[in-house]
Computed example of a mutant assay.
Amino acid sequence: MRVDLLYALTNRSGDMSWGDVLTATRQHAVMADKLGFDGIWLGEHHFDTDGTDACANPVMLAADIAARTERIRIGLAAVQLPLWHPVRLAEDLAMLDHFSGGRLEPAFARGIVDFEVMNLNPEADRWSAGPSKSEAIFEENFEIMRRAMTMDPFSYKGERYTFPHPGLKFKAAMGAVEHPGYVDENGFMKGFGIVPQPVQKPTPPMYVVTESMSGFMGAARRDTGAITWYPTGKGLKDLFAAYQKELTERHNKQLALGERCAVLRLAFVAKTDEEARRVTESSVVAFAEYVNKVRRANMWLDIDEDPNDPNLAKIPMYDLMMERDHLMIGSPKTVIERMRRLSETHNVKHWLLQMGFPGIRGPELESSLQLFGEEVLPALRKF
C-alpha cells in the first residue's frame, strides 16, 4: 500500500507571512520524508489571498523540496494544464525530474476556480466557455507536452499550436553535431530537440485529477493514472471499473480493480477520536462548504443519493462525510480501521491524505504527522 501526503500551503488565519508559510512547507516535507510517507503532492492555485492553498507554481516549489528530501516521491496534484504553455511545461517538468533524481510524478487538471482560469486563460474556463472547449484545450496541451518529452525531433500541428513555427530555418552552432530530421532539403525546420528529456522513461508517471466518468475514461485512453477526491461508495467502484475496462480495451493492459487509481481524503490523527473531532470539525465543515460552492454541487454524496432529500439536511456535515468515507480522521486505531476497510472494499492501494487543510495549524499538523508515521503507517505496511 502506498501512502502519500497532499500538502496545501494554508494560511486561513492570515497571521503568517509568505516566508513563514514557505518555511513550514519545507519543514513538513522533510518531516514526511523522514517519517516514511511515500510521496508528497503539491497543488496549483492562483490569487489565493484567503489562504486555502497559496501555491502559484508547484514546479518551482517541488524543485526546492526535492533538494531538501532524500527518498520521498515528488507529486504535483494538480498542474492546471490549460494555464501553461505545453512546451515550456514539458521543459520544466523534465528539469524537475532531474533535480529530484527521477522522483517526479505529475498530475494534471483543467482548473476549476473561475477567477483563476479567467484571469490566465479565459478561453479554457469551463463555466463561461463551456466544458467541451476546456476539454479540447486540455487534450491538445497534454498531447503536446507528452510528445515534447518523448520525441526527437519534436513536431506537432493542431488546432492551437504548430511546432516548429512555419518558415523558420535552423541555425546550428559552429561545430555542432548534425541532427537528422530537424530540417528539410531547403533548410527549413521540420522539428527540433527538447532539452532536457526527463530521467524517467518514457516520461515520469502521469495522472489526471478527476471525479467524473469522462475523466476516468480519458485517463485510461491516455494510459495515465487517475487521482480522485469526491467519489465514494458505488460511485467510486463504478469509476474504477470503467477505468479498468477502458484500459484493457485501449491498451490491452490487465489491471486489478483500483490499480493505478489514487484516492484523496482529508485525514487527521489524534490520541482519541474525540480529540480529533474537536480539533478538525469546524475546519472540515468550512472546507466542505467552500468546495460545494466552488464545484456548484454537493460533492460528498454517493451517486444514488438525492441532494434534495430532506433527511440528508438533518445530518451534521462532519457526520455525513464520516459516514461516506470522506474522512480518515480519529485515533490511530480508528484511522487504520477506516483505511483498511476502504482498501478491502474498493481495493484502494494508493492514498493521498490531506492533513493540513485550511484551519489546521502547524503544531496540530505536526502532531498528526508524527502519530500517523509512528502508529498508522507501520500497521498499513503490514496490511
Rank of each mutant, 00 (worst) to 15 (best):
R147L: 01
M174G: 06
R26A: 09
E366M: 15
P332V: 04
V199N: 07
L320A: 10
F99P: 12
C55S: 13
G111V: 07
S331L: 13
R361V: 02
R381N: 14
P231Q: 02
A262H: 04
L369C: 09
I144G: 00
P378T: 10
A256S: 11
G158A: 14
A24L: 13
P180W: 07
G362H: 13
S214R: 03
A242W: 09
R71T: 13
S282D: 13
F138L: 15
P164R: 01
T52L: 10
L371W: 08
M174S: 12
D184G: 06
V376P: 03
I303L: 06
K314H: 05
R160W: 06
I194Y: 00
T23D: 14
H179C: 00
V279S: 13
W300R: 08
D184T: 06
N57A: 15
E143T: 07
R73S: 14
L96N: 03
G111K: 05
A288W: 08
R71F: 10
F216A: 03
G14M: 06
E323I: 01
A313R: 15
F192R: 00
S283T: 11
R160G: 02
R260N: 06
P86N: 02
H28Y: 07
D38K: 07
D48N: 11
A288F: 06
I227N: 05
E139F: 05
V209P: 01
L312A: 11
G233D: 08
N311Q: 14
H85C: 01
D92C: 06
A148G: 01
L320V: 03
A313I: 12
G36E: 01
G373M: 02
R73E: 15
L42T: 02
A176I: 03
L247Y: 03
D304A: 09
K171S: 15
